[in-house]
Nucleic acid binder design. Structure first.
Length: 287
DNA sequence: TCTGGGGTCCTAGGACCC
DNA sequence: TCTGGGGTCCTAGGACCC
């Protein structure tokens, strides 16, 4: 897995061209906003203008890392993602503004970002199977998918105003373990929790942040899953403290009442305000 | 598919305060 | 003592993504 991360970092370095804004979505996916590098005035001309750059990136990734890459070019994230998925693993697809609506029509609603299994079923039941059906749907989508309705409608026409988010701010850190065999052995569970707490603590320390909330997750033999959390006043960084609160939550809510399939612990509630204080604490500890 | 791991966002209820 | 209404925080669950 580390090997994977190193490769990812190397490729992101290639993709992070000056003047462009990069949003890394996962180890193997990123959005690149190159609009600042374009000079053509018309939208579709601007998209076409980026084709040589996309070809260069694919070529460099192949020659320097020995890997193929799929690239999608479009006016927004929704379409760029669909374009890159269109031909894998070595594709280069451009969806122009002029062609986006017909391009979308035959695709399944499932291919839209934010439409998973559940939402797809809801839409299917209303007779909406393709994005074309979605475009033609006369009713109010809010009745089907709640507040996602208006956004879904706009997605259906290839409109998406989600910004590129280049910040690397994180909201939560967690770890979890699924056992080969369900267990309620306290010693094994504690050992597991302790290890997870250590990994989380290391990440917190490396980012110089502290967490105000600790969350424990358990899953039982029947796959039912529970989460319980606790918020404290002082930011936490120490593995021992994460572990202690994790154990406290387990006991408080009697979560180990039957064998566990999975146990996990996570932290959230980070803030700028805590980092300064933490720096002081860390400085003192290191003396 | 008998179901891994690490995330984000949304919703809804309840506590609490004014 | 009962009662409103709004705002915020905490909590839990679920849908979704990669």
């Amino acid at each position: 897995m580390n090997r994977y991360r190193e490769e990812s970092a190397a490729i992101m370095k290639i993709v992070a061209i000056p003047g462009a804004v990069l949003e890394q979505v996962s180890v193997d996916e990123a959005y690149l906003d190159v609009s600042a590098l374009c000079s053509e005035p018309k939208p579709d001309s601007r998209l076409a203008e980026t084709l040589p750059l996309a070809r260069d990136l694919k070529q460099i990734i192949l020659s320097e890392r020995g890997l193929t890459a799929s690239i999608g070019i479009a006016a927004n994230k929704l379409l760029a993602k669909l374009a890159s998925d269109f031909k894998k693993p070595d594709g280069l697809t451009l969806i122009s503004e002029r062609e986006k609506v017909p391009f979308l029509r035959p695709l399944s609603v499932r291919s839209i970002h934010g439409v998973g299994k559940v939402t797809q079923e809801v839409l299917n039941r209303a007779g909406i199977e393709t994005i074309g059906d979605l475009q033609d749907y006369p009713g109010d989508l809010r009745a089907l998918v709640g507040s996602f309705g208006p956004t879904l409608k706009r997605f259906g026409f290839g409109e998406d105003d989600r910004p590129i988010d280049s910040s690397d701010e994180i909201k939560s850190i967690s770890g979890e373990t699924t056992f080969l065999k369900d267990t309620e052995d306290r010693k094994q569970l504690r050992a597991c929790l302790r290890e997870q707490a250590q990994e989380i603590s290391a990440k917190l320390a490396s980012k110089q942040i502290g967490a105000l909330t600790v969350q424990v997750k358990v899953r039982y033999s029947d796959f039912s899953t529970l989460t319980r959390q606790l918020t404290v006043e002082e930011p936490i960084v120490d593995a021992a403290e994460i572990y202690r609160l994790g154990c406290h939550i387990l006991a408080r809510d009697r979560l180990v009442s039957r064998p566990l399939r999975l146990i996990g612990v996570g932290v959230s509630g980070f803030g700028e305000a805590y980092s300064k204080q933490l720096n002081l604490d860390l400085g003192r500890n290191h003396k």
